[in-house]
Write a protein that binds this DNA or RNA. Sequence first.
DNA 1: TTGATTTGTTGGAACGTTCCATTTAATAGG
DNA 2: CCTATTAAATGGAACGTTCCAACAAATCAA
Lengths: 351, 351
Amino acid sequence: MASRAKATILDIAREAGVSKSTVSLVLQGSGLIRPETALKVRKAIEDVGYVYNRGAANLRKAHSNVIGMVINDLTNPFFAELAVGMERVFQSAGIVPFIANTAENPVRQEEVLKSLMEQGVAGLVVSPARGTTPGAFRRLETAGVPVVFVMRRLPESRIPVITPDNHRGAYLATAHLIGKGHRRLAFFGGSSDLVVYHERLGGFRAACEALGIEPADRLVFEGETSRKGGIACLETALAMAAPPTAALCFNDAVAFGVLLALRKRGLEPGADFAVVGFDDVAEAEHYMPALTSVAVNTAGLGERAAHVVLKMIQSRTTRAEDHIGAVNLVVRESCGPDRKEHGCAGMGDAA
Amino acid sequence: MASRAKATILDIAREAGVSKSTVSLVLQGSGLIRPETALKVRKAIEDVGYVYNRGAANLRKAHSNVIGMVINDLTNPFFAELAVGMERVFQSAGIVPFIANTAENPVRQEEVLKSLMEQGVAGLVVSPARGTTPGAFRRLETAGVPVVFVMRRLPESRIPVITPDNHRGAYLATAHLIGKGHRRLAFFGGSSDLVVYHERLGGFRAACEALGIEPADRLVFEGETSRKGGIACLETALAMAAPPTAALCFNDAVAFGVLLALRKRGLEPGADFAVVGFDDVAEAEHYMPALTSVAVNTAGLGERAAHVVLKMIQSRTTRAEDHIGAVNLVVRESCGPDRKEHGCAGMGDAA
DNA sequence: TTGATTTGTTGGAACGTTCCATTTAATAGG
DNA sequence: CCTATTAAATGGAACGTTCCAACAAATCAA
């Protein structure tokens, strides 16, 4: 019942009456072997229930075909979509990537990276955890392991980054809100230890600036990047003397929270308070009301990141160009119809 | 810039002026080494930027500390929650598990399992893909690798299973519906190639049987186990001459789809049509209306599964007891208030 | 026929660790 | 002083692959 000592290529060699070298050659699909011999060997492989020992092979070859995807939060559907995009291209490259979750914890991330290195990964796609320290990837760099960041970046790092155009996305969304006639706007959720946060907030501010919203009428509420965070943001915002009438949310999760909290208060999302999300996760389309959001082509960026790391591995380099993905605002129901109270200067929805 | 040949324990040994064996001992935290020597070695390790080669070690030790979690669909928040539960216990055991996604594809699953075996995994927790063939895990079994199934099982397999009490959950939910006064019930979503499906459907049927619902009044609609599937089920159900007034859904995703489709048709979930979900994902609580669902303690089952596989590895066995987790119905808003049209025999909500 | 070439096949030396058996040094017992 | 005992450190043989250099057999050129 229990397995006897596991079979090696020597067992196969004996079984098939050839040398271990021949078996190795067959395993690697070398054309140097006579077809009949190969067949004989393959039969022996089946017979003894052989499983290839990649560890031993890597020891000799000094390059594994293991690729790691390090994700900061797998329970967030956004990152799950991202992971699936990457997987698609790895799969068609005949590679099984290993996914590791850091649960937004830099310490855990450190462990994960260490383990992956010890495993001898050939390359890594990483969405770094919040609060990642500057030196966290130095070991990888000095070891010459190709790494690419996706969706998130570190402030100073030289590691290539694949990310959506956060600034522009936020700008677009904010302009949309202003076009709807809103004059007192909020930015909900996120925290300043994330580079993305600054990018998105920057886009928000730039749009306000350009379209004539007074600094006093731009409200910024930091908070968790989750449903819960959204709920909290809305509560504190509405408790103000002069509350905002619309909000751009750091991401869709926050936006869902806001929608929920509005409903709880008996307010109609869209009509009473406009909200736009960011990322356009699959759920946004099916929400009640359907969420207006900035689509970032999540899976596409994932695929791009996977391609980049593959290319880096192949060309044995640790450098690559950054890639900023196009974004576009998909307008649904969560901003309601235009509000015409104030004379709004030519920002209608025509065209 | 590029890494020079990577350091091995011999380099450390030279640097520290000791033998490789000593270095190895230090690496394993052996108490046999004089503290000062250990210190010297540890310093050398830092200096040369050494990274441990687990592949080489496993070659000699013949047991890795790699554990794999094979998940059928990571984009489903339910399975993501499950994965996170498992991770928690692996983490506190000082193990970094590798997650692999099979995307509900048996062929992909085969590749994933092969790769994991080649990597020399010590154990596996698997939520098998739909349509997994009976022999898919034979290799693992003959290799003596501990495997435990979680959430899903194969029809014939002898591999231990950690799963919720699906039958009872479905029974509870159905009884609740009947207690609300419904007399024509539907079971929405899922397909018969899943063992879980039969278990849940069985519970549904048993409750109908026990509580006096005619076979003709039990409607079963197979469908995708997703929002989309739920929408489709509701459409075809309402197109019937005598449509059902309530549905037990295969899982929460299906239920969300049904809720959505009801809204789209201008029907009020709960009041016009009662729906109960299964799994009680985090989102259920926050939905509009909040979804009544069968809570299965997802993360808890994940933790249990992780513990079991850890124990199996430790005691080098490939067998373990099955574990059926308790379930309970959490009643929210999606079934509305009681309906009293028909004289319903003593199934009120009291107690 | 002889030598060169091609086609298949093969032994052996790595690769970086672990672990056993051994050695060396230091300490204790008589 | 010699012998046991303990503590600390070490050399060498694995582990299962890959790959190079070498070899054997068959084919070809002359």
